[in-house]
Amino acid sequence: MPDGERQPAASPEFDSVAETPAGRVRPGSPAGGSSLRRYKLYFLLPGLIVLLLIILFPLLFTIRVSFSSWSSSAPGLDWIAAKNYERLLADARYWESLVRLAMLAAGTVLIEYVLGFGLALLVWREVRAKRFFRVLFLVPMMTTPVIMTVIWRTIFHESLGPANEVMALFGLPAQAWLTSSSAAVIAVMVVEIWQWTPFMLLLLLAGLLSLPKEPFLAAAIDGAGPIRTFFRVTFPLMGPISVGAIIIRLIEASKIMETVYVLTSGGPGTATETSSFYIYIRGLRDFQIGYAASLSFAYLVMMIVSMTFIAKALNRALVGRRA
């Protein structure tokens, strides 16, 4: 390409650009700063437009659908104003599923965090077969959730599954894993914890490996034992990573679907019915597309709001002033 073509001097937007002898923009100058911003914008614009379309279009379409009565018997985008949202407010099953989800997500993520942290600490230091254990602990996360839930359903099968046989070996009574409300909730939590603790382990291990060595050396010189070192050095330093890991898992856990679908179908009764599963029932089983869209959008808004508050609270609790 000829040099003349590369110099856009004739273009009005380049008039104010301070140029170096080589014809390049000098970032330090005020004029160069504003034009650099414009340059950046031009380069980012195509990607931004695509990204916005990908993110925004489905969201805007969902909002539009939520104001329609689209269902198996009424196809299409009619306009019913806020009727779906009025119905949502009176839908006790939806709100109950949200409360259930909140408890389930909080419970599983807390346990995953504790277990994940413990396992990360185990394989952080020099232990024999460290690599083997690191891979082993990650195996559950690499399996297919639906298939593994089918396996877990077999394990929990009350007459054919091994769970009750194992309990019998220890003299414990057989449990109605999938037919008692409380046991079914525990069963769902067990599967979730088994599957996703490795994810927590992965993030926390990465965090541990990235910690600076100096604070630990200082603690050792000061004579701090392992417990004191953990609570005074390791845990505080891991604060920001812990917040990130917990938030990511909370977002994922709040979408819990496959486990409930395969393991309990939301039962017994509605004991394990979570918001995602309820929205799935309304949207894809009942084919109430309009109503399911309103449930989804309301759920999204509540998730954004609650996650914002949770993130702030966690930051304050685990990171403190350093946040």
Partner: peptide, 18 residues
């Protein structure tokens, strides 16, 4: 499906003692 799903939920909640 709306009718049957609603009925199944009711029956399930009675069977679960809810």
């Amino acid at each position: 499906n709306e009718f049957m799903s609603s009925m199944a939920t009711g029956v399930a909640s009675a069977m679960a003692g809810e």
